[in-house]
Design a protein around this nucleic acid. Structure first.
Lengths: 153, 153
DNA sequence: CCATGAAATGCAATTTTCGCGCATATAGAT
DNA sequence: ATCTATATGCGCGAAAATTGCATTTCATGG
């Protein structure tokens, strides 16, 4: 499989910033004709470098005033228990991301809620009552210095 | 300013999943003509509900094999010191997101690196030497259960 | 140093999609 | 019931994407 040249990297970088740029505009920035930009984009999509295109929404305008990270420590790692926990995480819409981490916490959840009451419900009525969960710690986002930026290429 | 109806929410949800759907396809899913879908999208953009469109790339295919969260505790909150620290965070490409949080840690950084060596350099040669930094703790991502999902609407 | 083939490029034609005007329909207020 | 705002679908013209094709570029082997 062909590797990426400098033009590919610059194209990927540009598309990360604004995926709605026309091939022509992109071509100007890259010194390339529109058709070539299109072909390169197709190739990058086909080869899996580009996973897709997403609209980025404004959480505050949508009433999501509370953003938080929730660390979860498990009481057990019994497969069945873990499975039901993972299912909850995958299902709950306010959990937008979830990772397994090294260190104390077993899981880190990124959460968007309308208000603290909603976050409280998630923690005290969903997570803590779960039998596999030992401890939950939440950190509320006060300020976002850098919002989901581009990958370093 | 007009509020959002059910169709708007469904449109936003669809665009979060795939921003490259044509107005016609979207119209089929929403029982709406293509032109109306376009108009609604324009309105949602103009009113700031949609911040933009981004291509989502595949970190692994791009050689970014290590994803981590880095917590930073500050030694001081003197404005000058903090400012230079923030500047570093904003500048460093491997830091894709950065938040100020409640709780022990003052900052949480989300980081993409090629390998552990690169992460090590960030921590030991960039963050820790900074005079405002007291303590750095890193948690490496072992598994991503849920990748930056849609906002809960 | 030149010949050769594979890959990349630009141009142009085709097709698709978008954007907007306009006439009609719908809902809410008086 | 009427009037007015807004929403909707249709259709046309413009913009953008996609594809075929001839040419150029570049690495490789002779």
């Amino acid at each position: 499989m062909a590797s990426l040249d400098d033009t590919d990297y610059r194209l990927l970088t540009a598309l990360q910033r604004d995926a709605h740029l026309t091939s022509e505009k992109l071509g100007e920035a890259l010194n390339l004709s529109a058709s070539q930009v299109g072909r390169r984009r197709q190739r990058l999509e086909a080869e899996g470098y580009i996973e897709g295109y997403r609209a980025r929404l404004a959480p505050l305008k949508l009433g999501l005033h509370v953003q938080a990270f929730v660390s979860v420590q498990m009481a057990t790692h019994a497969p069945d228990q873990v499975k039901t926990f993972v299912r909850i995480v995958e299902t709950r819409p306010e959990v937008t991301s979830a990772w397994t981490l090294t260190g104390e916490a077993d899981y880190l959840l990124r959460v968007y809620c309308e208000d603290l009451a909603a976050l409280n419900i998630l923690i005290h009525q969903v997570l803590l009552p779960h039998p596999a969960v030992a401890r939950v710690q939440s950190q509320i986002v006060m300020d976002q210095l850098k919002a989901d930026g581009p990958l370093p290429l």
